[in-house]
């Protein structure tokens, strides 16, 4: 391979209950990111690794701290008040610098819950540290693993979903019901096309509020949102769970391309970095 002068570098966090790091990293590699590192949260908090080295931060799914205080609550608390090294900068400042430099963040499932609870999305008024929406218990009151159809807002600024109209992916969560923090926020999300992905009918034409197509009762059928830059994106369904056609629940009865639909999210991110950030 011809060495590139500048390389796309992705970081995938793990530790404290994260559990989708392997497949998230696999998605980044298949999308041809040049460097993909799986890094323990404490390696960052102890200053061995900094986010500054990377372009794409992946926050995978899992059960951070067991979701004991509510999904990703304890982890958000951990990161919000952590300092890097014994007396270093606040981790929050490192993260804000990463965002300010125009880099990308993707949170899937528990990673989405973490982003929301840290306030990284939707972050209206550029306030990346204030929680404005939430994700809470599914209306069914239970964890569910099931595949859902997602209609993508093509007008959304989201970089990860460029060129995607609809996508079929699994959800695997107990706390995925999206609730905006008031009518004002709900309106802004809609007006600014920040509702990137909605639970929909199988032909991706309209959003659905009925169970089980909408698996959790999310307001406005919201499955994923981004910030106004489109560079920070989180959603409950798992694109990293559909990287290969054999992941599809009906691959033995349908003609499917080799590549799974989830890979496009990672390809979009890597392509954007190559074009805009290198």
């Amino acid at each position: 391979m011809v060495p590139r002068k500048q390389r796309v570098k992705a970081i995938v966090l793990y530790g404290y209950g994260i559990n989708c790091e392997t497949e998230m990293a696999h998605g980044c590699r298949l999308a041809e990111a040049d460097v993909v590192d799986i890094v323990h949260m404490n390696e960052i908090l102890q200053g061995e690794v900094t986010l500054d080295q990377y372009h794409l931060l992946n926050l995978p799914g899992g059960f951070l701290d067991g979701d004991d205080l509510g999904a990703a609550k304890a982890a958000a608390n951990r990161l919000r008040y952590a300092r890097v090294g014994a007396r270093g900068e606040r981790f929050q400042d490192q993260l804000l610098r990463f965002i300010k430099e125009g880099k990308l963040i993707f949170g899937g499932c528990n990673g989405f819950q973490l982003m929301v609870k840290l306030g990284l999305i939707p972050a209206f008024d550029g306030s990346y540290d204030t929680q404005q929406v939430t994700l809470t218990f599914n209306d069914s009151g239970r964890f569910e693993d099931r595949w859902v159809y997602l209609k993508i807002d093509e007008k959304s600024p989201c970089i990860f979903t460029r060129g995607i109209k609809g996508v079929y992916l699994p959800v695997r969560h107990g706390e995925g019901k999206f609730i905006p923090g008031g009518e004002e926020i709900r309106k802004k999300l809609k007006q600014r096309n920040l509702i990137v992905a909605q639970y929909s009918d199988p032909s991706f034409t309209h959003e659905v509020m009925d169970y089980p197509l909408n698996p959790n009762g999310s307001i406005d059928a919201v499955a994923g949102i981004c910030d106004e830059s489109g560079r920070l994106f989180g959603m409950m369904p798992h694109p990293e769970a559909y990287l290969h056609f054999t992941n599809h629940p009906r691959w033995t009865r349908e003609d499917l391309p080799e590549e799974g639909m989830g890979l496009a999210f990672f390809r979009n991110a890597v392509e954007y970095i190559r074009e805009e950030l290198l």
Partner: peptide
């Protein structure tokens, strides 16, 4: 079955 995550690690065939 629905309440068990049967797909994490993404190797499900």
């Amino acid at each position: 079955i629905r309440q068990y995550d049967h797909e994490v690690q993404a190797g499900s065939v």
